[in-house]
Design a protein around this nucleic acid. Structure first.
Lengths: 317, 317
DNA sequence: TTCACTGCGGCCACTTTCTGACCGCAATGA
DNA sequence: TCATTGCGGTCAGAAAGTGGCCGCAGTGAA
C-alpha cells in the first residue's frame, strides 16, 4: 500500500505544481493505467480535494481551492522561502502575526531537512535588523525550541539572567510564547518555585527540552497575553509618541504603515501616535517626511530630533 | 483504500502537531489496533519520514527532520501565517527572497480555501508600507495570478499601460516573474509582436489566464534576470549610495541589515553602500545613527540630508 | 534487581481494496 | 462530423491491509 499512498501524494504534488495536467501524462508519470489514475483522482475528491477535470481535446486535471487546506508538498526552494518569510513575520514585520508565525515556523523548522535548515540558519537572527533599531536580537533556534516545547507540552530547562541577581538554571513547564511590545516572553509554570512566571526570551539561553511531557495547568484568567500584560503594568518602559505633522495623513500613513496610528486633523495635517521602545524610529520618520511638525510628547523626542538634525546639517555640508 | 491514505495523512498531521505521542493514543485516534498503527508508522518510515520511537514506560512516537520535506499539514491559523509571511517577504522584507516567495505564495494561495483567502486579502497590498516609501503598491492577487500562469505554462491576457502611449490589451506566454530593484517585472513572449518583452507589473492590470497551455520557448541567454538587467541598462533609475560613517561597523550593520553593505575601514569607521530608488531611506539611517558622516555619492543625498536636518532643527524647538 | 510498561516484528487467516482490461457514454472543440 | 479525452460500470486475479496472537527487547521506577 505504500505504493498507493505514496502515489496519491505524488499526484497531489503534481497537481500542486503545474496547473493543468492531461490525464495521460499523469498516468504516465505515476506509472499506472489511465483507469487507475481516474480512480486516484476520485479518491482525492473523496478526501475533499476538489480536482477539476476538462474533457475534450485539450482536457486535463486541475486542483482547485477547497474547503480544507490540502497537505502542502513543497520543494526545497519553497520550504526555505516559507521559513524565511515566517522568520521575518515572527520578527514583527507584519504586526499582529508574530505569535502565529512562530508557531508555524516551529512546525516547519521541526520538519525541515538539515541541509535546508543550514541555509536558513545562515540568515540568522530572528529580529530583522534594519527595520529600525528596536527589539533585541534573538536566536531563531531559541525561539522555535521554546515554541516546540510549548506545543509539545514538554518540560524545559534553560539559563535565565534576570534583570537583577544572578543567572540560574530554571526548570519549567512552558505554556505560551507571547510577543509584547517587540519583545518575546515565555509564560511558564516554574517547577522549582511552584508558580507561574514570565521570562524574557532575550535573557534566556541554552534551552533544553527534557523529554518529559506534562499535562498543562490552567493559567489564572486563562489568557496568557492578558496575564502577562497585567504583570508588565508595573514595569512600563515604552514611549508614547504623539506628533502633529503638517502633511497629508495618507502620506504619513503610507510611511509608518502599521507601526503607528495616524489621525487626520480637521484643521489640516495629522497626528501621528506611536508606541516604541526606541525613539530612533520616530525621528527617522520626522526626518524623512520633510514636513513641519510639532512634538507633543515625549520631551526626549524633541531633543533627539534636534540633535539628529544638527548632526545631519553639520555633516552634509 | 481512501481509508489507509487518509489515515496516513492524519497520522502525519498528528505527528506534526504534537511532538510526542504515546502509541496507544495514536491508535485510539486513528481507530485502529496498535498492530496496525505500528504498520502505519513503518509505512511512513518506508516513505522516508523518520519517525522516532521511544520504548519503556514513557515511550511514544515522534517525527524528526528527514531527508525530504514531508507534506505540510497546516491548520487555518498556520496557513494564514504562512501566506502573510510570504506576502511580506515577496514585498521585499527579506532581500533576495522576493521571487521564491512569490512562487511559494502562488502555490499556497492557489490551494487556500476561500474563507482563509478572504482573511488574507483583508491585509491587502503586497508592498509592506512603512518600511520606507519605496516600491509601487501591488495587488497580491495580480502578482500571484502571474506567478501561477508562469508556473502553469498558461497563456495570459492583460491590460498594459506603457510609460508612453496608450494602454492596450496584451496576449502573452508568461515566462518568469522577476523582482529587480524593488519592482516586479513579467518576462513573457508577446504573442502579437512575436518577440520577448518585459512588463512592469505595476503598470499591468486585469490579468486573465486564458486556459490555453503552451510549451515554453527558450529565452535568449537562458537567464531571465540577466536578460532583464541587460534590457534595463538603458534606463537606470536607481541611486548608488556611498557614505563613510564614523561609527562602529557592527552598529551600522545592525541598523541597515540586508538593505546595504557595510565595510569596515582600517582607519576606523565604516563605509555604507546602498542601492535605492528613494533617498529617503539612507537619510533616515544617517539621521538616527547620530554619528559624523561624509557623503561620497550621490550629491543629491547631501542636499536631502541637509534639508531634512534643517527641518528637524527648526521644528524641534 | 525486579517489574510494569511500551514498542518491535513475525506469523496466520480473513477481508478488503487495488489494478488493468474492456466496454459504451458524454462532453469538447477543430 | 470526428478525433480526443474524461467518466464510470463490470470482471477476475493479485495485492494489500487488518486484527489477534506471540515472544522479544529496551526503559525507568519501585
Amino acid at each position: 500500500m505504500a505504493n498507493t499512498s505514496a502515489r496519491m501524494l505524488r499526484l497531489l504534488s503534481l497537481l500542486q505544481t503545474h496547473r493543468y495536467w492531461p490525464g495521460s501524462e499523469l498516468a504516465d508519470r505515476l506509472e499506472v493505467s489511465a483507469r487507475t489514475l481516474r480512480r486516484d483522482v476520485d479518491r482525492l475528491r473523496e478526501l475533499g480535494y476538489p480536482v477539476d477535470a476538462a474533457r475534450g481535446v485539450a482536457g486535463g486535471y486541475q486542483l482547485q481551492a477547497g474547503a480544507a487546506m490540502p497537505p502542502l508538498l513543497l520543494d526545497d526552494e519553497e520550504a526555505v522561502a516559507i521559513a524565511v518569510g515566517l522568520h521575518s513575520a515572527a520578527a514583527g514585520a507584519v504586526a499582529g502575526f508574530e505569535e502565529t508565525s512562530v508557531r508555524a515556523l516551529a512546525k516547519v523548522i521541526q520538519l525541515l531537512p538539515p541541509r535546508l535548515r543550514r541555509r536558513i540558519d545562515a540568515l540568522q537572527a530572528v529580529t530583522t535588523p534594519g527595520v529600525f533599531g528596536g527589539g533585541p536580537v534573538l536566536d531563531a533556534l531559541t525561539l522555535t525550541t521554546l515554541a516546540m516545547a510549548c506545543r509539545g507540552e514538554e518540560r524545559l530547562r534553560f539559563d535565565y539572567a534576570p534583570r537583577e541577581g544572578e543567572a540560574a538554571r530554571r526548570h519549567v513547564e512552558p505554556h505560551r510564547l507571547v510577543s509584547l511590545g517587540r519583545r518575546w516572553y515565555l509564560v511558564a509554570w516554574d517547577l522549582e518555585r511552584g508558580d507561574w512566571r514570565s521570562f524574557r526570551v532575550d535573557r534566556l539561553s541554552a534551552p533544553q527540552p527534557t523529554g518529559a511531557r506534562f499535562r498543562p495547568r490552567e493559567l489564572p484568567g486563562g489568557d496568557p497575553v492578558e496575564w502577562l500584560r497585567s504583570r508588565m503594568r508595573t514595569i512600563p518602559n515604552r514611549y508614547e509618541v504623539s506628533v502633529v505633522i503638517q502633511a497629508d495623513g495618507a502620506t504619513v500613513r503610507g510611511f509608518v504603515g502599521n507601526w503607528g496610528w495616524v489621525e487626520d486633523l480637521p484643521e489640516g495635517g495629522c497626528r501621528l501616535r506611536m508606541n516604541v521602545d526606541d525613539l530612533g524610529w520616530p525621528v527617522m520618520v520626522l526626518g524623512v517626511l520633510a514636513a513641519p511638525f510639532t512634538v507633543e510628547s515625549p520631551g526626549e523626542l524633541r531633543d533627539l530630533a534636534r540633535r539628529a538634525g544638527e548632526n545631519l546639517v553639520r555633516h552634509a555640508a
